[in-house]
Simulated assay, not measured.
Amino acid sequence: MSLIAKGARIHPMAVVEDGATIGEGVTVGPFCYVGAKVVLHDNVVLFTNAVVTGRTTIGQGTKIFPMAVVGGDPQSVHHGGEETTLTVGDNCTIREGVTMNTGTAEFGGQTIVGNNNLFLANSHVAHDCRVGDNVIMSNNVMLAGHVVIEDRAILGGGCAVHQFTRVGRHAFIGGLSAVSYDVIPYGMLNGNPGVLGGLNVVGMTRAGVERAVIHRVRRAFKAIFEGEGSIRDNAASIRGEYADCKEAMQILDFIAADSDRALSSPNRGQKG
């Protein structure tokens, strides 16, 4: 039995399967499809021809535009039909043709998308991805499986992110870039193959990072990527010097964390 709030507005030409949960103020437009295991929290809007399927939860205030398919099965040859999940946070905008898949049982079965994110037309979030808050994915951005995108990262149109890759907070990925290796927080990557070109100073400034702090993080960046040792050894050697700088420590902690991928660097062939 569906649980449909009295204040929900469901067009008579929409299909809402028995079992769905529909919150107050939800709008479901004509020719939309809502699956039996879907939860739409308050004030979600589904524009005409939007599809929400699978065991999918959509946070309050999120808007899903025409021809988006949210909650489809993972596009993985290893998926055996297990029931897995997709969770999308509050106040996201999911534009035309966007696709988001549920997780795979082998890796925990969860795809998780945070709050206040903007997914432009035809972008894709694959199985088992983790997308933080306030992320912007421009048109045709492609996330492969198991990708992690941290808060406030911006991905330019048509870029592709390799499976298991991490993109740090406040990073900027240029349009049409190929992201094969992890991108540090505040990093700026462009090209195919992607090359780390420096720091996203514009993004840092917009985020309110003081000029003196930006200069300090630049010095840390230079020590990490231009020092005589490996990237990880260089990063470890300067931790004490930058212990009082939050932004630098975010970069150093990112580098120190376990990862399935090497690190993007200013030298294309260099791996961490």
Score class of each variant (00 low, 15 high):
residue 168 G to T: 04
residue 93 T to A: 04
residue 239 R to Q: 09
residue 169 R to Y: 02
residue 184 I to S: 09
residue 265 S to F: 13
residue 270 Q to R: 12
residue 255 I to C: 06
residue 170 H to Q: 03
residue 55 R to P: 10
residue 270 Q to V: 10
residue 129 C to D: 05
residue 108 G to H: 10
residue 258 D to Y: 08
residue 198 G to N: 10
residue 119 F to P: 00
residue 231 I to T: 11
residue 7 G to D: 15
residue 98 V to I: 09
residue 186 Y to R: 03
residue 191 G to Y: 10
residue 163 Q to R: 08
residue 122 N to L: 10
residue 181 Y to M: 14
residue 101 N to M: 03
residue 167 V to S: 12
residue 270 Q to H: 09
residue 137 M to E: 05
residue 159 C to R: 01
residue 208 G to N: 08
residue 10 I to R: 06
residue 137 M to L: 10
residue 215 H to C: 13
residue 150 E to V: 07
residue 30 P to N: 07
residue 163 Q to K: 10
residue 4 I to Y: 13
residue 79 H to Q: 09
residue 87 T to H: 10
residue 238 I to T: 12
residue 97 G to K: 07
residue 271 K to I: 15
residue 32 C to R: 06
residue 174 G to E: 00
residue 199 L to V: 01
residue 64 I to A: 01
residue 222 K to H: 13
residue 53 T to D: 14
residue 221 F to G: 02
residue 17 E to W: 14
residue 2 S to P: 12
residue 145 G to Q: 06
residue 125 V to L: 01
residue 61 G to P: 00
residue 2 S to D: 08
residue 67 M to K: 00
residue 168 G to M: 04
residue 119 F to G: 00
residue 44 V to N: 01
residue 198 G to Y: 12
residue 197 G to M: 07
residue 38 V to E: 04
residue 77 V to A: 13
residue 103 G to E: 00
residue 15 V to R: 05
residue 266 P to Q: 00
residue 116 N to D: 15
residue 108 G to S: 13
residue 93 T to Q: 06
residue 147 V to F: 11
residue 251 I to H: 02
residue 228 E to F: 00
residue 49 N to Q: 10
residue 193 P to S: 08
residue 114 G to T: 07
residue 12 P to S: 13
residue 83 E to Y: 02
residue 260 D to C: 02
residue 123 S to C: 10
residue 118 L to M: 07
residue 189 L to C: 02
residue 120 L to E: 03
residue 206 R to L: 11
residue 272 G to C: 12
residue 37 K to P: 12
residue 120 L to T: 01
residue 18 D to H: 13
residue 197 G to D: 04
residue 116 N to W: 15
residue 158 G to L: 10
residue 248 A to G: 06
residue 232 R to C: 09
residue 113 V to Y: 05
residue 255 I to N: 03
residue 108 G to F: 03
residue 173 I to H: 03
residue 258 D to L: 11
residue 4 I to P: 01
residue 176 L to P: 00
residue 96 E to R: 06
residue 20 A to W: 01
residue 235 A to M: 03
residue 92 C to R: 05
residue 249 M to Q: 13
residue 134 N to Y: 15
residue 51 V to S: 03
residue 22 I to N: 01
residue 264 S to T: 14
residue 101 N to R: 00
residue 157 G to K: 09
residue 179 V to L: 12
residue 15 V to D: 14
residue 165 T to S: 05
residue 262 A to T: 13
residue 18 D to M: 11
residue 60 Q to Y: 15
residue 158 G to R: 08
residue 163 Q to T: 05
residue 185 P to S: 09
residue 66 P to E: 04
residue 108 G to Y: 04
residue 246 K to N: 08
residue 175 G to K: 08
residue 257 A to Q: 14
residue 67 M to L: 02
residue 55 R to L: 02
residue 104 T to M: 13
